[in-house]
Amino acid sequence: MANTNKNSKVAVIMGSDSDFSVLKDCIKLLKQFNVEVEVMVCSAHRTPDKAAEFAKNAESEGFGVIIAAAGKAAHLPGVLAAYTPLPVIGVPIKSSTMDGLDSLLSIVQMPSGIPVATVAIDGAENAALLAVQILSTANDELRTKMKEYKKNLAKKVEDKNAALQEKLKEI
Rank of each mutant, 00 (worst) to 15 (best):
S21N: 15
D159L: 15
A82E: 10
I114A: 05
K28G: 11
V35T: 05
E59M: 08
E36I: 02
A117E: 08
V108N: 02
L104P: 03
K151P: 09
A128V: 11
L129F: 05
K9C: 01
V10Q: 00
L135H: 02
E141R: 14
A52H: 14
L101Y: 10
G15T: 06
I107R: 01
I89W: 02
K50L: 12
I171Q: 15
N5E: 12
S21E: 12
K6N: 09
A131G: 06
A69I: 00
N126K: 07
A73M: 08
N3L: 12
L86F: 10
V108S: 08
V88H: 03
D17Y: 15
K31A: 15
A131W: 02
M110G: 07
I66L: 13
A11N: 06
A124W: 05
G100V: 04
I171M: 13
L104G: 00
L135K: 01
E170N: 09
V88C: 13
M146I: 14
Y83T: 03
V132T: 04
V108A: 09
S60Q: 15
A120K: 10
L153S: 14
A73T: 11
A58V: 05
N3Y: 07
L29Y: 01
A82S: 15
V65S: 02
A120I: 15
V108Q: 01
T47L: 13
G90D: 04
V79A: 13
K72P: 06
I93T: 05
K6Y: 07
T47P: 01
L23T: 08
V65F: 03
D159T: 12
E141F: 05
I13R: 02
A120G: 11
S8G: 13
A70D: 11
K155Y: 07
L23V: 03
D17A: 14
Q165H: 10
F33A: 07
D159M: 12
N3W: 06
F20N: 07
I13L: 13
A58S: 12
A44C: 09
S106M: 05
I121N: 00
D102S: 14
A68T: 04
V108T: 07
M98N: 13
L23P: 02
A55Y: 03
L142I: 01
G78D: 11
A70I: 02
I107K: 01
A11V: 00
D140S: 14
T137C: 06
G62I: 02
E61F: 07
L29G: 03
Q133C: 09
V10L: 01
K145R: 09
K156V: 13
A162E: 08
V39F: 10
A154I: 14
V157S: 11
V35N: 00
V39N: 13
R143H: 14
K156D: 14
V116L: 06
S8Q: 05
V79Y: 08
A74T: 04
P111L: 08
L153E: 15
H75P: 09
K31R: 15
V79I: 14
D19G: 10
I114T: 11
Q133T: 14
S8C: 04
A162G: 10
V119L: 00
E61T: 08
K155V: 12
A127D: 04
I114P: 00
I107W: 00
I66H: 03
S136Q: 05
A74M: 11
Y149E: 10
K9L: 00
E38T: 08
